[in-house]
Amino acid sequence: MLDGTLADKVAVVTGGSRGIGRATSLALARQGAALVVNYHDQADAELDQSTAASEVVAAIVESGGKAVAHQADISDEQAARGLIDRAVDEFGRIDILVNNAGICPSQDFLEMPVSLFDRVHAVNLRGAFISSQQAARHMVRQGHGGRIITVSSISALVGGSYQAAYCPTKSGLHSMMQSLAILLGPHGITCNSVGPGEVDTDMNRILPDYDEIAAQLANRIPVGRVAQPEDIADPIVFLASDGARYVNGAFLLIDGGMFVNLQ
């Protein structure tokens, strides 16, 4: 997009230091939005990427934008509310929330401890619930609408053999957005989700032989390749833009045609 369509807007991206969140933070900032880039220090450190969030912020600031990094584990209620409040403290308001933070540990269902199920739900679903609620409270008070955009997944529509904990959070996220779309619509706040297919990010790169897996998957994807994070970020910018103001409660699948081909 060419026109700084988000000038004067303030956005929070959860899990904004890496992957889709990183690309989304950069893309929103390119359109003029001021950014709160959330990251979780432990998660970044585990992948030896402790400087990831500050690099995103530096890139935005260097190109003339506004951004701050904010560490928070959004599964913690106080931390998640504090993250959203940071936008208001720092930039005076919040217009756009992108619920992106998510984890996807693969494990056989028969062996999966309940603690793992709980953790995935706490980050993916509970974290988005708290963040959305806090953002919506500000947006309703501000009185000029807003955008809540949630990164769901193709996994909201299809199961995965080692993803008995992850997939239900992704369908749950879209279901939550539908309910919020109805409740918050009258306030001019639209709530939508995007459903990425297979994306080249740390979440998948953590698998050994990922390049081989990606090449195999590409055969099942009509456009012939897995997605890059930017393929997901641009449609999120569209949903945040003024032109998308009548899109509400929608699920925007961004999968190169994978879902229809899997059926």
Partner: peptide, 25 residues
């Protein structure tokens, strides 16, 4: 316009509702 633009180059086989939330519930 969005679906015609380069920004949507990974979207294929999708039905995008633009209904103000009508079909959400």
């Amino acid at each position: 316009l969005f679906l015609a633009a380069p920004e949507s180059s990974y979207i294929n086989g999708h039905v995008l509702t633009v209904d103000g939330g009508w079909s959400a519930g």
